Amino acid sequence: MTTSGQAAQGLPEDFQIDISIEAGSWPEEASLLALCSKAFDTAFSVAGLEAVAGSEVSLVFTNDEAIRVLNHRWRDKDKATNVLSFPGSDPDNEVYGPLLGDIVLACETVQREAVDLGIEFSDHVTHLVVHGMLHLFDYDHQEDDEAELMESLERLILADLGIADPYADKPLTADDD
Rank of each mutant, 00 (worst) to 15 (best):
T2M: 13
T3V: 14
S4P: 04
Q6F: 15
Q6P: 02
Q9S: 13
Q9F: 07
G10I: 10
L11D: 09
P12K: 15
E13T: 13
E13N: 12
E13S: 13
E13M: 08
F15D: 04
Q16L: 11
I17T: 11
I17P: 01
D18L: 08
A23K: 05
A23I: 03
A23Y: 05
A23N: 06
S25I: 11
A30N: 12
S31K: 14
S37I: 01
S37F: 05
S37E: 08
K38F: 03
D41C: 10
D41P: 08
A43P: 04
F44N: 02
S45V: 02
A51L: 04
V52S: 00
G54M: 13
G54T: 10
S58L: 03
L59M: 14
V60Q: 05
F61R: 11
D64H: 12
A66F: 14
I67D: 00
L70Y: 08
L70E: 04
N71S: 13
N71L: 05
N71V: 11
N71Q: 08
R73G: 13
R75Y: 15
R75N: 15
D76G: 09
T81M: 11
S85G: 12
S85Q: 03
S85M: 09
F86W: 06
G88C: 00
S89V: 05
S89G: 14
P91W: 02
P91Y: 11
D92P: 00
D92R: 15
N93I: 11
V95L: 03
V95G: 02
V95W: 00
G97K: 09
P98D: 11
G101M: 01
G101R: 07
D102R: 07
I103T: 09
A106F: 03
C107A: 12
C107K: 09
T109R: 03
V110C: 05
V110E: 04
V110D: 01
Q111R: 14
E113A: 01
A114E: 04
L117S: 06
G118Y: 00
G118R: 06
I119H: 00
E120D: 15
F121D: 04
S122W: 00
S122F: 07
S122Q: 05
H127N: 07
L128Y: 06
L128T: 00
H131V: 06
M133F: 08
L134Q: 00
L134S: 06
H135A: 06
D138I: 07
Y139D: 02
D140R: 12
Q142T: 11
Q142C: 14
D144T: 13
D144S: 12
E146W: 05
A147R: 03
A147D: 01
L149V: 09
M150K: 03
E151L: 02
L153D: 00
L153Q: 07
E154H: 10
L158I: 00
A159H: 07
G162F: 13
I163K: 05
A164D: 14
D165Q: 05
P166D: 01
A168H: 10
T173K: 15
A174K: 12
A174G: 14
D176V: 03
D177N: 04
